[in-house]
Computed example of a mutant assay.
Amino acid sequence: MENLEKISLESKRLILQPISLEHTEDVFREFTSEITTFMYPKPVHSLSETEKIIRDMILQRENHTDLVLVILKKDHLEFLGICEVGAIDTHTPELGIWLKKSAHGYGFGREAIHALKDWVDKNLEYNYLSYPVDKRNIPSRKIAESLGGKIFREFQQINKSGYLLDEVEYRIYK
């Protein structure tokens, strides 16, 4: 596997780069309660809390367990959100993504996840990719389906904000 610190993925409109502390303010500002409605994590309450989470993401990258990438718009390097592949040290990695509110509806999520899956296919040995998503999150479900994802199971869980998530887990194969 290539050096995870040096990864830079490009698509037609986007650049995906490893998360770093320079993105702390963007993540803190854009990872809102509205964005996390259908997600397990909850928004943080301070820049220092955001910085700690990003430091943990960097450590996970250094330990080759997770790869978290910021999504930047190619023309002005505007921060759009984050995509990731977790559990990269297993045969069942998990894809995830979130975009800031103003980036919704432009196909950036699909473009980012497709670029990430291309990297995964070239660099990881896996049986399938997992893509869990709340049933109500139709745009994210469409991303999984655009990769050929098929629903494997359904489950419910309480997220960190205390709300019930009604999830489906897509499995995506090479």
Results as ranks from 00 to 15, higher is better:
residue 65 T to E: 10
residue 136 R to V: 09
residue 16 L to I: 04
residue 161 S to R: 06
residue 106 Y to N: 10
residue 170 Y to W: 03
residue 103 A to E: 08
residue 77 L to H: 13
residue 87 A to V: 09
residue 64 H to I: 06
residue 172 I to T: 00
residue 29 R to Y: 15
residue 1 M to L: 14
residue 5 E to P: 00
residue 45 H to G: 15
residue 1 M to A: 14
residue 101 K to Y: 13
residue 4 L to A: 08
residue 95 L to V: 03
residue 93 P to S: 03
residue 137 N to W: 05
residue 111 E to A: 06
residue 129 L to P: 00
residue 145 E to T: 00
residue 10 E to H: 11
residue 113 I to Y: 07
residue 35 I to D: 14
residue 76 H to M: 00
residue 136 R to T: 11
residue 58 I to C: 08
residue 28 F to G: 06
residue 148 G to W: 03
residue 42 K to Q: 10
residue 14 L to T: 04
residue 151 I to G: 04
residue 24 T to L: 08
residue 80 L to T: 01
residue 143 I to C: 07
residue 167 E to Q: 13
residue 56 D to M: 15
residue 51 E to P: 07
residue 162 G to T: 02
residue 7 I to P: 07
residue 115 A to C: 06
residue 18 P to M: 12
residue 48 S to G: 08
residue 117 K to Q: 09
residue 40 Y to N: 03
residue 43 P to L: 02
residue 88 I to D: 02
residue 71 I to P: 13
residue 20 S to M: 00
residue 89 D to V: 07
residue 90 T to R: 01
residue 108 F to Q: 11
residue 61 R to Q: 12
residue 114 H to F: 04
residue 71 I to W: 01
residue 163 Y to T: 13
residue 21 L to M: 06
residue 135 K to V: 15
residue 84 E to R: 04
residue 48 S to Q: 11
residue 35 I to T: 12
residue 31 F to Y: 08
residue 153 R to N: 14
residue 140 S to H: 02
residue 109 G to Y: 11
residue 161 S to V: 08
residue 160 K to H: 08
residue 65 T to W: 01
residue 165 L to W: 01
residue 98 W to G: 00
residue 31 F to N: 10
residue 22 E to M: 09
residue 91 H to L: 14
residue 53 I to Q: 13
residue 160 K to Q: 05
residue 93 P to N: 02
residue 173 Y to L: 08
residue 14 L to F: 01
residue 142 K to Q: 03
residue 61 R to E: 06
residue 46 S to R: 02
residue 99 L to K: 14
residue 150 K to G: 05
residue 130 S to M: 10
residue 103 A to H: 09
residue 149 G to F: 09
residue 146 S to A: 08
